[in-house]
Nucleic acid binder design. Sequence first.
DNA 1: TACTATTTTTAGCTTAGTCTAAAATAAGTT
DNA 2: AACTTATTTTAGACTAAGCTAAAAATAGTA
Lengths: 217, 217
Amino acid sequence: MYTRAEENYLKCIFHLEQEHKGAVATNAIAQMMSTKASSATDMIQRLADKELVSYRRYKGTTLTKSGIAVAVAVIRKHRLWEVFLVEKLNFQWDEVHEIAEQLEHIQSEELITRLDKFLDHPDYDPHGDPIPDKDGNIKKTEKKVLSEMSKSQHGILVGVRETSGEFLQYLDKRNIAIGTKIKVLGKEFFDGSMIIQVKREQFFISKKIAENLYIQV
Amino acid sequence: MYTRAEENYLKCIFHLEQEHKGAVATNAIAQMMSTKASSATDMIQRLADKELVSYRRYKGTTLTKSGIAVAVAVIRKHRLWEVFLVEKLNFQWDEVHEIAEQLEHIQSEELITRLDKFLDHPDYDPHGDPIPDKDGNIKKTEKKVLSEMSKSQHGILVGVRETSGEFLQYLDKRNIAIGTKIKVLGKEFFDGSMIIQVKREQFFISKKIAENLYIQV
DNA sequence: TACTATTTTTAGCTTAGTCTAAAATAAGTT
DNA sequence: AACTTATTTTAGACTAAGCTAAAAATAGTA
Ligand SMILES: [Mn+2]
Ligand SMILES: [Mn+2]
Ligand SMILES: [Mn+2]
Ligand SMILES: [Mn+2]
């Protein structure tokens, strides 16, 4: 099928396209892939040859139908493996990303079908991200970023934007997890910082933290 | 650490060294790796540079201490994953080899430690092969090849040499599995074929089959 | 508009791993 | 011992994927 590098690039382009809606800049891809723009251009051109992306020099890149299919299949595998690692092997949610990054490239339809069944067809991964189904459909959930909520609004945490270890450990330390109820007690206009209520406790959080928490109201 | 190709070559050399006791011929490696002798030579020389094998031109290859360590670690991972696939995901024993061939290269100490625990520290893989422990020790079991047994001797099947789908399916069809009791009812000197008793049934088997069944008497 | 800065692409080089064809060595046979 | 065959190694070429440095295109600004 496709190489590890091709799969990783396609996944990366998919995520960037979701975020910014529209053609993705070569630099953005290079940055997310931790590589140089020249390397990214090179790979983009190969992906274009294989009709996995459509690409016009200097104008940016978008995934084609088949590019999306590959990307979504990899994302499905990644998230299913993350569920396995947390649910079955008792990893913490901040420890699974690196390993899933490798496992997502294992080639076997049957393996994923059986893994999905073994895990009882989970809908979300440990970070609250939806798991695409076999046909690539992704459940769209209504959610907003905590930083966009206003005083006295409340909701439950349904996902995180960042998945770095540091960020997830920050949340662990404050007992904030997927499913936790969060209420905005105060919001500072100057820097976007907030005071929030989590269970019986109140915390001060910076705008940067608030921007990385997805809330369902 | 090491590349996929390096790991596969080391594993291959390990198996060949076990079988024939002594330096391994370049052609044997090339054949087992399904590649050309020139490619094998190339890789052997790279492995020698890294002191994973000791190699003298035209004389053959043997693993060094550190080469053995790498090979055994990969074999441990391969066999643990095979147990997972059969025990947890309900694969048949003839379906797991290909997938384990990929999974064995996932890099994470912690993952294997936890997988081993999750599987309740199995001693053998689905084909009866021993699983090396964390320190690389392999349990040596007393076993002989069925073809070397004589009339009226009996024992139980503890392993298979071949692990190809065709061979394992042949055994399935005759209800021969790890743990099955087998008795030699007759043996033909001319071609080494045998009549064996398995449960209530008797079978004719060729020498080639008998050579691939390991029996504990 | 013209100049400058940023982004993107091209050109050329590197490494891992493969191949074919040819050369070198070892083994087998009169 | 000399010749023939088989095995192994070398030489040279290829692809995927990366890099640096230079060129080209685009965007921003005076
Ligand atoms: Mn990956
Ligand atoms: Mn995730
Ligand atoms: Mn392998
Ligand atoms: Mn096995």
